[in-house]
Design a protein around this nucleic acid. Structure first.
Lengths: 232, 232
DNA sequence: CTGAACGGAATGAACGTTCATTCCGTTTTT
DNA sequence: AAAAACGGAATGAACGTTCATTCCGTTCAG
């Protein structure tokens, strides 16, 4: 299990935070402001419906109705339903990316950085529940375009690097960084998923603080007693 | 945060393990064996497609083609597409329920029971990847019928009780049992999801053993050093 | 030979998409 | 300054396609 030698974390070139914003359609005489506003209405309606019913479960005319826009208007802003869902994905994902990574300093004290990261991730899930559910509770792979896939990596890579850094510091558990990341991320998703399904009461700050400590204990290397060695 | 007084775990009445099996259609002259076989073919094909493309992304004639059956035949076995997806759900869910709970003894040593549970869950995910992905990576709520919802509870309740038992024993972390459960379950789902998406190498036994220890450390009460108290 | 089971073409509803038309802010003309 | 003409944006009825479901001629078991 070798990883790149890395005591210092090569700040992984956060892409400029405005990539991911959609190009408005070629405006003729319409003010760009109006056009952007209408595009936002469409994207917002699409997000609401996609996050609730999924891509295939959502009809384009329904999006139009919710956006208070004619069905044809959507096609002035997006080439197709697939382009629309990629637009929604890119907007949500770059919002998440910025929430997670902007001014995030993975160096220095690992526990502090972990706390910061936890706050950013759970804060995003709470402030942007539709975006979070859209991104995490569905399988987008079949229709994502190249841009969308790259956005995915813009988040995964830095987070992965942070895990590796924490491991190199001797703080994180001695496992593949990606595995650790997948479990912690999964735990957070599981938490908000259960909350949304009504299996849990609303996640207040107390619960989230307990959950953070639990995930930190998952994350870091010092083992609990009762190790599991003499087992059937 | 009060929970029922519970030093002994009321073995929660595992429902008979054959509930969840589908009733074959009223057979006239066809042998029940043949009919059951055809129903299995349909359910298998539906599982394969639903788990990959989701409910709305799958066309019934595609299911028929994969099952090597006429489109009309499906409607001899299932009233509608919704009934079909509920059939798939119930078959997968009762398979999971049996894998998790049959002869599961939540009493006694908590660490051993946790290990047993971990093996059962990850074993299921590996032996039945389609079922696992179908169950965990999609939002079924909109079309589940009453029977399907009850199956859900047949798993949740015992697992929840085990968490509470572990807490009452002073072993599990002092959090709401449901929250703990949601995080651990989520971590496992996150692991296999990342593996399936190609973000992780195949989860071999070594990785799973590390992951188990990490989840155990999430689960149990003894805190790691570096508690997070003097924080900004 | 009879009746149940089957396959797959047929069907109507619903979908994504298009396009002829309307609307409205701007420009040009008087 | 008022009126007329212009043109891009928006619209929603209409189009072809695809879907879930039905129907019926054929096949097969008893």
């Amino acid at each position: 299990m070798n990883q790149p030698d890395m005591q210092t974390l090569p700040t992984p070139d956060l892409p400029d935070p405005n990539s991911g914003s959609l190009a408005p359609p070629a405006t003729g005489s319409l003010t760009a402001a109006k056009a952007a506003q209408k595009q936002r209405a469409i994207l917002g309606a699409a997000l609401a419906l996609f996050s609730e019913r999924g891509f295939h479960g959502t009809a384009v005319p329904d999006v139009a109705r919710l956006a208070e826009v004619g069905a044809g208007t959507i096609y002035r802003y997006f080439d197709s339903k697939e382009a629309l869902v990629n637009g929604v994905f890119q907007q949500a994902k770059s919002l998440l990316r910025d929430a997670l990574l902007q001014d995030f300093d993975p160096q220095g004290d690992v526990r502090l950085a972990f706390h910061d990261f936890w706050q950013r991730l759970t804060g995003f899930a709470r402030r942007h529940p539709l975006e979070f559910r859209f991104l995490e509770l569905q399988d987008h792979v079949p229709y994502l375009d190249e841009t969308s896939r790259q956005l995915e990596l813009q988040i995964l890579l830095p987070v992965n690097l942070f895990c590796q850094y924490a491991r190199d510091q001797g703080v994180a558990r001695d496992m593949a960084a990606g595995t650790l990341m997948a479990m912690i991320w999964g735990a957070v998703v599981g938490l908000f998923k259960a909350e949304h399904l009504g299996y849990l009461p609303t996640c207040d700050d107390t619960i989230l603080a307990q959950a953070e400590q639990a995930c930190w204990d998952l994350f870091c290397r010092v083992s609990n007693p009762l190790p599991l060695h003499p087992l059937p």
